[in-house]
Design a protein around this nucleic acid. Structure first.
Lengths: 193, 193
DNA sequence: AATAATATTGCACTCAGTGTAATGTTCAAG
DNA sequence: CTTGAACATTACACTGAGTGCAATATTATT
């Protein structure tokens, strides 16, 4: 099925992977800021200039590892039955999605991101982007125009709750599974409002 | 009362103001990215190197205009009566705070921030910082240890709702006052959860 | 007036990121 | 199997943000 992949695509995928691997390895070894693009390029076996053919910036190496989740969430939402309330549908979808993400990687990436203010900032920005994507998906499923504000809030709530759960997960060093923390947070949400 | 301000402090305040003014003027004139620190320094009548004595980076010029609100919110919360539910107390506090911020400035700053991805990202990060400050304030006022998760959520909800309201305000070009949008959003919040 | 503390500056440097243009590689069509 | 188009890789030169350091100037203190 995925075998009809040309030489070009394969090489591209491999190079992308080599850059990412080299980057993360170096970031862990000597810190994010202290690692230069020259070093990453050298370790990945490409020219410095080529790096920018694959990534827009240094922080994209880390960001690219995070951006997948939003898309998965939107996908899971589309397949959910339409009779649930939005927040319930999201809750179920996100628990399902998080089950398929390796926990150890999450912790490493999170620690790396915390080491640079600029990266940390872009991470928060990417949450906002995910929020907007989620809002767009919600609007398609519950297209009542008078509910726009409400759906924006739901998207904000959902992404915010996810963010807090992942933060708690990392704060605890991964001692409790993400799914548990998610349920805890979503339950607390209904109690607080 | 504020007259016992030495020469040093006065000069510092004035220089800070000159840098901010020069920066914003130039950003509006020729765009954020296209404005160099050399130009800002020249316009503010200081050396390039001195700029970094006042600001850690170029984007701090814009960020510094935003960071005041979180502190004001925390202050207002401290003076609020303790018998309200947290979310209600915050709602009242933020409406009071926003009344004292000039609307035109908000719109200009917002447009400037949108013109640079890095600034936009740092803006979102500053919301998260405000969220954490708010959480700390809430925990002092409602120090029940079993409610940590709940208070984190309240802080997230509150800052998120504020953010969405300000976004809506800017999206509408300032046609409706912020207070109205805030009340609308907080009302919708209770309806959606 | 002397001294300490803080501000201002110049200089040289590192590094991220961009524009451009040249060269190499893969692909598709004949 | 060749040829041309599309894509990939690279070198080179450049801009601009941000830092370290050390010298000088200004303000505060006693």
């Amino acid at each position: 099925m995925t075998t009809n992949e040309g030489l070009r695509e394969r090489k591209r995928r491999e190079t992308l992977q080599r850059i990412t691997d080299a980057g993360i390895r170096l970031f862990i070894e000597k810190g994010y800021e202290a690692t230069t693009l020259d070093e990453i390029a050298a370790a990945a076996g490409i020219a410095r200039r080529t790096f920018f053919y694959y990534f827009k910036s240094k922080d994209e190496i880390l960001l690219s590892l995070q951006s997948g989740m939003g898309a998965m969430l939107v996908e899971a939402l589309k397949r959910a039955p339409g009779d649930k309330r939005p927040l319930r549908a999201i809750r179920d979808a996100v628990v399902a999605v998080c089950a398929r993400v390796p926990a150890d990687d999450m912790i490493v990436i999170d620690r790396l991101m915390r080491s640079s203010e600029a990266v940390q900032a872009r991470k928060q920005a990417s949450y906002v982007q995910q929020e907007q994507a989620l809002f767009a998906a919600l609007r398609e499923r519950w297209p009542d125009p008078g509910r726009e504000t409400g759906l924006r809030l739901v998207a904000m709530l959902a992404i915010g709750t996810i963010r807090l759960s992942l933060d708690a997960f990392n704060r605890e060093g991964g001692s409790r599974p993400v799914a548990v923390l998610l349920h805890e947070a979503f339950d607390a949400l209904e109690a607080e409002v």
